[in-house]
Amino acid sequence: MRLGLTVPAFRWPGGPAQIGLHLGRIARTADELGLASLWVMDHYFQVAINGRATDPMIDGYSALSFAAAHTSRIRLGTLCTGVTYRHPGLLGKLVTTLDVLSGGRAYLGIGAAWYEEEHAGLGVPFPPLGERFERLEETLQIIGKMFSGDETPYAGRHYQLARPLNSPQPLGRVDARRPHPPILIGGAGERKTLRLVAQYGDACNIYDSADLPRKLAVLREHCERLNRPYEEIEKTVLTRFTLANDPRTNPDASVDHLVRLAELGVDHAIVAFPGVHTDGAIGALAEVAAKIADVVPLGRQAASL
């Protein structure tokens, strides 16, 4: 089982002038200590679960490019880019650029978008939910063309691309089955989101909650209907460590919780926990990662990890 780290907030000592210093140190430490992945949110404003809208929030892809320059191994992605934030063709170029400059370490994390306040605040159109899902499916189709080198025109209801040229092509994984940045689709909507995962995704991202087993079961059902091997999809879960199971204070509880996730079939747990910028925080998480490295998620062979 793999363990990643998400950095969802930037309200750190020293204020904005020290954000780069803290983020660079977090990225280097996570990389050096062997964590599997590093993630940031892709939002204009901070979200309520992490603080106030006025708290510092930096651009997701600028942050990942900065992190790429401070690291050499760790995978990099957003949780998640809202489909409304960028035109699909530009998003494809953006993720490809991150992938090329990082040596093939990018994920594309994407979802249907939900934070209406930030759209209104900055004047970004926020279509109704049904249209956002239509745009998400078209974006996934366009990104698939761009990542595969298909330059033929695309004519959808919402997007028209005369020539989706993408040069250079992304480097992606050293894996013939996934010759591009893995496309991770965030969300757990049973009718639309999980169907899109089964049809277009290389990975899903679902919140760690009591209904996780049901969500994975629904994903499996969509895969069966689409004749897609369920095992091909990387199951990632966003989990939040609190003081009750913080690896700095209770590493055994952290390990036990992650083992339970693996028993459900989760391949990759992505952790948010308070004080990630403090001394020893990432080291404690890395110790937990080492203890679960040999845990094989349900339905996986050890070699496939």
Score class of each variant (00 low, 15 high):
Leu136Arg: 10
Pro164Val: 02
Ala69Ser: 14
Leu21Val: 04
Ala120Phe: 07
Ala176Tyr: 13
His22Pro: 02
Leu298Tyr: 11
Gly265Ile: 09
Leu258Pro: 00
Ala68His: 13
Thr97Phe: 05
Gly280Lys: 03
Ile142His: 04
Ile26Leu: 10
Thr71His: 07
Pro164Gly: 00
Leu5Thr: 09
Asp208Ala: 13
Met146Cys: 03
Gly189Ser: 11
Asp150Pro: 01
Gly275Met: 05
Leu136Tyr: 10
Ala113Ser: 14
Leu122Glu: 05
Leu98Val: 05
Arg300Asp: 10
Asp246Asn: 00
Tyr107Gln: 02
Ala262Gly: 10
Met146Ala: 04
Gly51Val: 01
Asp42Gln: 06
Ala53Trp: 08
His43Tyr: 10
Leu298Met: 09
Asp55Gly: 11
Arg132Glu: 10
Ile282Gly: 00
Leu261Ile: 03
Pro8Trp: 12
Val40Gln: 03
Ala253Cys: 05
Leu35Ala: 14
Arg75Lys: 13
Pro181Lys: 10
Met41Val: 08
Ala30Ser: 12
Gly20Gln: 06
Phe273Val: 01
Ala203Arg: 04
Ala289Tyr: 11
Ala272Ile: 14
Ile282His: 01
Pro128His: 10
Arg300Ala: 05
Leu305Val: 07
Gly24His: 09
Leu38Met: 06
Pro170Phe: 08
Val100His: 03
Glu151Ala: 09
Ala176Asp: 15
Gly189Asn: 12
Val124Ala: 07
Arg173Trp: 15
Glu151Tyr: 13
Val7Arg: 07
His87Cys: 00
Phe147Tyr: 15
Lys192Ile: 15
Ala68Val: 14
Pro168Arg: 05
Leu184Arg: 08
Leu194Ala: 10
Gly4Asn: 14
Phe66Lys: 03
Arg177Cys: 07
Glu224Pro: 02
Ala120Cys: 03
Met57Ala: 05
Val276Gln: 06
Arg214Leu: 01
His180Glu: 02
Lys145Thr: 04
Arg75Gln: 14
Arg75Thr: 09
Asn245Thr: 00
Ser65Glu: 09
Ile185Trp: 05
Gly109Phe: 01
Tyr115Thr: 01
Lys93His: 13
Tyr200Pro: 00
Ile206Ser: 01
Gly77Lys: 02
Pro297Gly: 08
Ile233Met: 09
Leu140Val: 09
Pro125Phe: 11
Ala36Glu: 15
Ser148Cys: 06
Leu98Ile: 06
Arg52Cys: 07
Ala17Asn: 07
